[in-house]
């Protein structure tokens, strides 16, 4: 049977992680259909129809779907679920909020946050903050799965021409109301998909000091991350948090500055290709995962780092 993927988008554009989830979903079964639920989201449906992995796009459009209210999305998905063996979406705050609501109503035990598709019913997933990997087999007839996007490459975005069909909408929930979203806009690359991430921890001492990190991020075209301690202390907003209860990142280069390397932080970054740690405590656990460790005071090291970068003739973007 076919796989139904729930797209994440902002009514204009597909969110990048949807493309990673598409790759994973088509490894489960290549008859992949995508459900777009939104308000005036025609462009989203169109762009997904051009993804070669996608065989069909089902588009449900109504004003009530402007924001991701799980209570409004769920009945639509259930209405379309019948012919599918798997319902999938990405394991970010969108999918984490939504998928269990669907799974419970289908009486399915959800498999969360898979990092590998072993077969149609068997998957690999991290547990205990990534300190163990579990191979799990779902015995439910219909499977509900969320996909860790950073563990799969994004699907190509052009070359396909899947049909787009209109799906049925359902009524809006009377019990949940969207009030507002405080979205932090920036010109930097997105944390989840950036090639380089530079993160600051409690060692930064203040939000003001994060300008040392910003300057380097500008130079390297990097995204900015943070430990939970830095967010808790108010140095930076929550959307920057990397770790077990924040975001998972797998950049080519991750630079941890003034971060001790608690397992909950490592859970979000230790799959990065190259890890750099700058910390004045030579015993800090972050050094155990760092390819290059610099034992130094960050207030000396960061300005020097910028200076050295400025000396380079070329920098990869």
């Amino acid at each position: 049977m076919s796989v139904l993927l729930i797209a994440e988008h902002n009514n204009k554009e597909v969110k990048p992680f949807t493309l990673n989830a598409i790759s994973a979903a088509s490894q489960i079964n290549d008859d992949l259909h995508v459900l777009v639920i939104g308000k005036n989201a025609d462009l989203v449906a169109k762009s997904l129809s051009e993804v070669p992995n996608v065989k069909k796009v089902i588009h449900v459009d109504n004003d009530i779907y402007e924001n991701y209210i799980a209570e409004n999305y769920t009945p639509v998905i259930l209405k379309h679920a019948e012919n599918y063996s798997h319902i999938v979406c990405s394991a970010n705050t969108f999918g984490k909020n939504l998928m269990p609501r669907i799974a419970a109503l289908l009486d399915t035990s959800q498999v969360s946050d898979i990092i590998k598709v072993i077969s149609e019913d068997t998957f690999l997933r991290p547990i205990y903050a990534g300190n163990a990997f579990a191979t799990v087999k779902s015995t439910d007839k219909k499977k509900c799965i969320t996909i860790r996007p950073t563990s799969f490459d994004p699907a190509p975005t052009s070359g396909g021409s899947a049909e787009i069909v209109k799906g049925e909408n359902t009524d809006a929930s009377q019990n949940t109301k969207f009030v507002k979203k405080e979205e932090i806009k920036s010109d930097r690359p997105e944390l989840g998909t950036a090639r380089i991430v530079i993160s600051g921890g409690r060692g930064m001492q203040s939000g003001e000091n994060f300008k040392l990190i910003t300057a380097i991020a500008d130079k390297l075209n990097a995204a900015i991350g943070a430990s939970r301690a830095a967010v808790d202390a108010g140095y930076i907003t929550n959307d920057h948090q990397v770790g077990q209860t924040g975001k998972v990142v797998v950049p080519d280069l991750y630079i941890a500055v003034g971060i001790s390397g608690a397992i909950q932080h490592l859970a979000g970054m230790k799959e990065s290709k190259v890890i750099v740690a700058i910390n004045k405590d030579g015993e800090a656990p972050i050094f155990s995962v760092a390819d290059y460790g610099l034992e130094a005071d960050l207030f000396d090291a960061l300005p020097k780092f910028l200076e050295e970068l400025n000396k380079l003739n070329t920098i990869q973007k």
């Binding site: 924001n67 970010n92 969108f94 109301k177 405080e182």
Partner: peptide, 13 residues
Amino acid sequence: REVDEGLETIEVK
């Protein structure tokens, strides 16, 4: 609510 993009506010009955 803490979401990937920042913060979202909802009202639930």
